[in-house]
């Protein structure tokens, strides 16, 4: 007689491998870090709710950027204009000030995204090149605007509240990240747009022949990506109480790393948001625990690189060329 299916093993099987690996690795990081603090300081500071909530809050900024990056990567493209989209939206928003600050910041993101989308979808320039060029232009544009005189870089009260406040003990950035995550996940799984995205990532020509305007889907994905980067920019400006030029630089490569560690194929066509969320937490926690362990910057970089390759070798390998 066949054994009744064990509900726990069914649940585990429904989670895909990247999420499982990432979760396991997060636990390993916490165990190693806690062992370190137990030996050196005699406490388990890494397991305190305060520390974990703080890490979640820091993850929220990267997580929002990574959610956007994932949309573009699902299509088989990439957005390298993220750093200056973050900086430009935050700087223009703080310069605008008042109630209009946040809408202005998001509109900057929308504008950049639509422009990226037009270049990639209509001119068919490889996204890596086009968005790289847009990044340089944005940087030049901001140097032009802020070089001669310095507009206000103070975030508005609302931006400060969104970045630093909390509701019932949960930081607001985490709540925003959760809302973004649920919305993106819903869009990917339950709406035609989301299904088109996966399909285009697999074979755009086939989607085009099915009568779908693939170019509009590309523009929409780039627009969403840049708007999420702009949203993150507004939150980061609030969190660090200042909008500044290099603020977006530390988010580009970690966001791509978070997406691929989460199991999204860099060539497009497959991947889940849950993986990206786990990848984000893994990267933030790894960096944080290593700095708690007083690992110098050099060592953190090396471990970070090795972890990415090791995780991908465990589950992200391509198929052998066979004909």
């Amino acid at each position: 007689m066949a054994m009744a299916e064990n509900p726990i093993s069914t649940a585990i099987r429904s989670i895909d491998r990247p999420v499982l690996f990432a979760a396991a690795f997060i636990v390993v990081i916490l165990i190693v870090g806690t062992a370190y603090t137990l030996i050196t300081q005699g406490n388990a500071a890494l397991l305190s709710p305060t520390y974990l909530l703080l890490q979640l809050k820091v993850s929220a900024f990267l997580g929002i950027v990574a959610a956007g990056a994932m949309l573009v990567i699902l299509l088989g493209h990439i957005d390298l204009s993220v750093p200056w989209t973050i900086a430009a939206s935050a700087m223009l928003a703080t310069a605008w000030g008042g109630a209009g600050a946040i809408p202005v910041g998001l509109l900057v993101g929308l504008g950049v995204g639509v422009f990226n989308g037009l270049g990639v979808a209509f001119l068919r320039i490889p996204s890596m090149i086009f968005t790289l060029g847009v990044n340089v232009v944005l940087r030049g544009f901001m140097v032009m605007l802020t070089g001669g005189f310095s507009p206000s870089s103070e975030p508005t009260d609302l931006m400060l509240l969104l970045a630093k406040g909390d509701v019932l003990g949960i930081p607001i950035p985490v709540i925003i990240w959760a809302v973004v995550g649920i919305a993106v996940s819903f869009m990917l799984r339950r709406t035609p747009l989301g299904r088109y995205m996966y399909a285009i990532g697999n074979r755009e020509g086939a989607v085009y022949l099915s009568g779908i305007n693939t170019r509009l889907v590309l523009v929409a994905a780039f627009a969403m990506c840049s708007m999420l980067a702009a949203l993150a920019g507004l939150l980061i400006a609030g969190y660090s109480s200042k909008a500044f030029q290099a603020m977006g630089d530390p988010y580009l490569l970690p966001s791509i790393a978070a997406v691929v560690i989460g199991g999204t194929n860099i060539l497009g066509g497959s991947g889940k948001l849950s993986g990206t969320v786990m990848g984000t937490i893994l990267i933030v926690l790894l960096q944080s625990v290593l700095s708690v362990m007083q690992m110098p910057e050099a060592g953190r970089q090396i471990i970070y690189g090795i972890v990415i390759i090791a995780m991908l070798l465990a589950y992200g390998r391509g198929s052998r060329l066979r004909l």
């Binding site: 790393a257 860099i266 970070y304 090795i306 990415i308 390759i309």
Partner: peptide
């Protein structure tokens, strides 16, 4: 390793 060059070189 059969990984994509963009990710590999990002890490290395």
């Amino acid at each position: 390793g059969r990984l994509q060059p963009i990710v590999v070189t990002l890490a290395t």
